[in-house]
Design a protein around this nucleic acid. Structure first.
Length: 701
DNA sequence: ATGACCAATTGA
DNA sequence: CAATTGGTCATG
């Protein structure tokens, strides 16, 4: 703009339709002259009679602007600019979107208030509860509210907004049926009864093998619903949404719940969202974004399989569904259920801190429902000795189990995905090699240097395995996963079906077939698998990630849970090292014991959830500057910075990138988050190079 | 981000 | 001495 004078701040806000209609066709200079002429003749603003001030959260990505700003509400917008409504406002010289947080009689702002530019609609899409939740999540993950709101509130669809929402029909819920489904579990009946009575029980549930968990969750939802309250169920993927949705339909009938998934299209998504925000429907099932669903009178939040990394949001500030729901249960005083076949260290902490009770399967129930689990060795020597194993690259006993299983029904083979980034491992016991200083994974960076830690960079020239005393290190072979075709050739008379990556099967029929699946893509078998084989377990354990062990057990339990009970001939064959404690936990079906040990190990290694950990990534200079600026809590540890590789196929756009790890004891977690918010605010205000902050990242390799 | 403002730096 | 550049500050 060449104009020497700048328009007064209130000037453009009174531009009526005429100026806007011409905007595109006009040259910039001509337009601004037109504006000046209009401004001179501007009519006085007519503010709303009641509560003429709106507190607006503006949608700007800058950390230091993450706070409400007051605007004047013109009388004609007063009816629409209700709390929770979308508005457009003039902010720092541009039109931006915003949400009305609340209306009030006066502002404490000294200067003149600009009027709202437009009330987009009167639909209250941001409830007070979700606004408060978003503020917490932003603070916890050192992000901005506008980033969180982008996850919480779907894009508007004007046509859908004009439709009325269909209210759920009246419904009687059979609470006894719900109690019956939960009664085999210790603590199960009490949990459901509390929900039905309008209380707020919180529990961590370890489902028994073979459990029809969608049905059980639907019953818990129904019990809550019978008390007049709403429910949110979050699951990892859309296959699970479909299963829980079907179970809810079976228990509650049509029209009592909505599905919230990204893959249903913007209009359907907004329609479901509005049904909830308008209170027409009070039960929601969906993927991670459903944790923010505006369900009225929330009585229960549920997350299934909280260890699944799909529940960690992919967009800034990367909140985890379990953490969002736990906070929500706290803020909205409702019940909570953190559930899965396996148990995460985070869920264990909820139990050990007394926040949640546990609901567990008694040993008898596990014996009654579980398959017979056996571990078969797969060391190189054993494989070499066994001719059958050499041919199929499979131990003989596993080969036999598959053959026998195929005569009884479908057989599932779980094979790790190709290309895990593997850290160094002990060459004797295959346990992952960890840094003695910070428990990070060891790796080899340069040919003639000793191995060093991927987190703190410390070199380990004289590593000794803490488990077996071995001194040798080996790099596990990457992606040594056999293919479906290979295995199919070993069993030529049976059909082979694969489920992985792009092609994921939901279900397989109850007849002999070999089903090869990658973790997370296992189809459900109608009558249960006669045999489940877990291949290359040591490969999965060799991943560099801090959650490698927990994640491995979770994947194995999820697959093993799909087998028939032992009484019906169900078998689970695990190919791996039988002395490995995590395989013992699988053998004994002991998710609680494993999670308890895992939490203990995380405590001694100062890893989440015992510690709060944040990674900062960016250029070397940016990290150095950020570290100098960061006011860390007293007990903070700083690891690194270490250089990080650019993602494969995409060279560094802004020069070499590095990563810094900061961690504090859990008690100082909030202080660390505050310090990081402060840092991001200062850096954004000074327009410094971006530093990406991730609090409690779900993976750290 | 965008824009405004002030101070320091540069060039004829 | 004016013009330009850079840092700081506020955004209602």
């Amino acid at each position: 703009m060449t104009e020497p004078e700048h328009p007064a701040p209130e000037q453009p806000d009174l531009m009526p339709e005429l100026g806007r209609a011409r905007e595109t066709a006009r040259a910039a200079k001509q337009r601004s002259e037109q504006q000046r002429a209009k401004a001179a003749a501007k009519p006085p603003l007519d503010p709303a009679a009641v509560d003429p001030v709106a507190e607006v959260l503006v949608d700007v990505p800058l950390a230091h602007l993450d706070r409400p700003f007051d605007y004047l509400v013109p009388a004609k917008m007063s009816g629409d600019a209700v709390p929770g409504a979308r508005v457009k406002v003039r902010f720092a010289g541009q039109d931006v979107d915003g949400f009305v947080l609340r209306r009030k009689a006066a502002s404490s702002h000294e200067g003149r208030l600009a009027p709202l530019r437009r009330a987009v609609s009167s639909e209250a899409v941001l409830s007070a509860e979700v606004a408060a939740l978003s503020a917490f999540v932003a603070a916890r993950y050192a992000g901005t509210r506008s980033d969180v709101l982008r996850l919480a509130v779907p894009t508007r669809h004007a046509t859908v907004e004009k439709e009325p929402s269909t209210p759920a029909p009246p419904r009687h819920v059979d609470v006894e049926a719900a109690e019956k489904v939960w009664s085999p579990y210790t603590g199960g009946t009490a949990f459901v009864r509390h929900l039905a009575e309008g209380n707020r029980p919180r529990a961590v549930w370890s489902a028994s093998p073979g459990e029809d968990w969608p049905a059980a969750i639907a019953q818990a939802a129904a019990a809550t619903y019978s008390s007049g309250r709403g429910v949110i169920v979050c699951v990892p993927d859309h296959r699970d949404v479909a299963r829980v949705s079907a179970a809810l339909r079976a228990v509650l009938g049509e029209g009592h719940h909505v599905e919230l998934t990204a893959d249903k299209g913007p209009s359907e998504r907004y329609r479901s969202f509005l049904a909830l925000s308008r209170g027409a429907v009070k039960v929601a099932v969906g993927t991670r974004a459903a944790a923010f669903a505006p369900v009225h009178d929330l009585g229960l939040v549920v997350v299934w399989d909280d260890g699944d990394d799909l529940l960690a949001e992919l967009h800034a500030p990367y909140p985890h569904t379990r953490e969002v729901l736990v906070q929500r249960a706290y803020q909205e005083s409702c019940g909570a259920l953190v559930a899965g076949f396996a148990r995460t260290a985070e869920a264990q902490l909820l139990v050990q801190s007394g926040w949640a009770r546990q609901i567990v399967a008694p040993r008898d129930l596990v014996r009654e429902r579980g398959a017979l689990v056996s571990i078969t060795g797969a060391t190189d020597r054993e494989l070499e000795r066994d001719p059958m194993a050499r041919q199929a690259r499979l131990p003989g006993s596993a080969f036999e189990a598959i053959r026998a299983g195929l005569h009884q029904g479908p057989v599932l083979l779980q094979t790790p995905r190709h290309g895990y980034a593997a850290s160094l491992a002990c060459d004797r016991c295959r346990g992952p090699a960890r840094c003695r200083a910070c428990a990070g994974p060891l790796r080899v960076n340069a040919a003639h240097r000793p191995p060093s830690c991927a987190w703190c960079g410390q070199e380990e020239p004289t590593w000794v395995c803490p488990t077996c005393g071995g001194r040798g290190l080996r790099a596990p072979v990457r992606g040594d996963a056999r293919t479906a075709e290979e295995l199919g050739r070993s069993f030529p008379s049976f059909g082979v079906r694969t489920s992985s990556g792009e092609r994921v099967l939901d279900e397989v029929p109850d007849k002999p077939a070999l089903v090869v699946a990658t973790p997370g893509a296992e189809p459900v078998a109608a009558g249960g698998y006669s045999c489940v084989v877990l291949l290359d377990t040591w490969l999965m354990l060799a991943r560099t990630d801090l959650r490698a062990t927990e994640e491995s057990l979770r994947r194995w339990m999820n697959a093993a849970a799909l087998a028939r009970p032992a009484s019906a001939g169900g078998r689970v064959v695990v190919v791996g090292e039988s002395t490995e404690p995590v395989l013992q936990a699988l053998l004994r079906w002991d998710p609680e014991g494993f999670a308890s040990r895992e939490l203990g190990e995380r405590e001694s290694a100062h890893l989440p959830p015992a510690s709060r950990l944040a990674t900062l990534s960016g250029s070397d200079q940016a990290l150095t500057a950020a570290l100098a600026m960061l006011e860390l809590p007293p007990a903070a540890e700083v690891l690194g910075p270490v250089p990080v590789d650019a993602p494969p196929g995409r060279p560094d756009p802004d020069g070499p990138q590095a990563r810094l790890v900061v961690r504090v004891p859990r008690s100082e977690g909030a202080a660390l988050s505050r310090a990081l918010v402060e840092l991001q605010g200062v850096r954004a205000a000074k327009k410094l190079d971006p530093v990406r902050v991730q609090v409690d990242p779900v993976t750290l390799g």
